[in-house]
Amino acid sequence: MIPKYILNENTHEVELVRRADNITLEVDGHLVDARIHWIDRHQCELTVNGVAREVYAAQDDNKLFLHLDGKTFQLDALDEFGEGDEGVAGGGRIKAPMPGVMIESYVKDGDTVSEGDALMLIESMKLQTEIKAPVSGVVVSLGCEAGASFDKGAVLVDIEVPEAEA
């Protein structure tokens, strides 16, 4: 397997080449000589190509958080396995552009909506935003109820486009 990480929206390959006293990695095709010494669960000293850095690391599932050179970096470990689920999201699926709270839903399952209709009011960062229908169709599922919070990327509403119009 080839470990892949997304940093600033770009995917990078970090291949392990060899691990003896030193570790050799191949980062995007460049050989890197590394040495790592863990001080505790979160803190380590990492030497990369001779430059030593104090690094703090923590992980939440496939999200990796690193602190080095006075900055914090968030990376996603790429899940090779999930690719099969992609492509399901169609034109009628609205994913949350940001985390927030559903204030009010103007529609319910089964409602017929036209493109541009206001579907719901969400709130995030003290800003309220109206979510509008991207296509005309029938609401097949609402992602959450009024008052419920959601994370970025959560499906807010699914609209099924009738066959004839698809």
């Binding site: 470990p3 990480y5 392990l16 060899r18 691990r19 003896a20 890197v32 990369v48 050179d69």
Partner: peptide, 30 residues
């Protein structure tokens, strides 16, 4: 490169894989 190296070397799933790799294969490497 430092960030990506740190990511890979601290990634829990990679640490588990590396810990499971017998020394001889780690030192022969890729």
């Amino acid at each position: 490169r430092a960030v990506l190296s740190a990511a890979m070397l601290s990634d829990r799933s990679m640490k588990l894989i590396m810990e499971a790799t017998p020394d001889i294969y780690a030192s022969i490497g890729r």
